[in-house]
Amino acid sequence: MEGKHSPVNKLFFICFAWLVAATLPFYSPAYVLLSITSILMYVTLTVSWTIFCGPTGYISLATATFFGIGIYCAALLGSSLPAPAVVLCGGLAGLAFGVLVGLICLRLSGFYFAVFTFGLSELVRHSVLWWEHNVSGTVGRWVTGTSITQAFYSLLVIASLSILAAYLIRRSIYGMALKAIGESEEAAEHAGINVVVYRIAFFAISSFFMGMAGAAMAAKFTYIDPNSAFNPLISFTPVLMSLFGGIERDYGPILGAFILTFISEVLLSRFPYFYTLIYGIIFVVVILFMPRGLAGLLGSGHQHKFMDH
């Protein structure tokens, strides 16, 4: 690799970006902080989605489920536990449900997997809706609010952790195993990979980060109901962002989440009526002309990065 991209420079860049982010609340206006927080949320969701779905190519449309579970965890526990514990509980709830979903959809792959996970997330949304109406007798719930600065910091930490996890997994032997599973489960099994355990474990790990993101974001929403917590749009956006950024590179999903969230915030304030239309056009253009995403345009076309010795 040329000097411009040497590991030291990369590390320096990462530290610099992190430092800028960490000191942001001291000098930026509240609304900037608010949009950065939602960017960080989408970064977490997209990066954690890519942990499992990137190498395997199984499109999960259940992101909203794990995110919503995190939110409801925060709503239920927010008043009785300190904030970091709430976030951790949200993550653990996501993890537990991830294991369950992983167990149920073991035999599924390809579009059956996508349809199943989408159906499942709708089922969860309607079940919670039913429960709230008929059992708890409420429509929505209040979440004990925290300051925007605190929400920002928890999301910064969660996003950093998910990026670190994605980076390490991708570079490890597990990353290669997931890729092998995506190409052919049977051949992966022949190669001595415990396909069942890996599928469940890495699906659950990505659910863990989604749950944490939900629990941390809940404080910002202050009022939640099943339709907003389990919003199906949350399931689709990570897929779009990840494809937009390019899943072949580590920074692709981060870049995708950053730019698309930014674009949608700008569009929403400038063109509230044409927002989804323009967003849709951008996406069609990306799929047609940049099949490998932004990272594909920027990169040198060297796709097999993570196992070069």
């Binding site: 032997i173 290669m176 195993a177 890729k179 092998a180 190409e183 052919s184 049977e186 051949a187 992966a188 022949h190 190669a191 001595g192 990979i193 097999h304 196992m307 010795h309």
Partner: peptide, 19 residues
């Protein structure tokens, strides 16, 4: 053969010794 077509030759070999 059943190899992993989207991986490099070396990656395929490495998977042969998986675990």
């Amino acid at each position: 053969g059943a190899f992993f077509s989207k991986m490099t030759v070396n990656e395929n070999l490495e998977l042969g010794a998986y675990g």
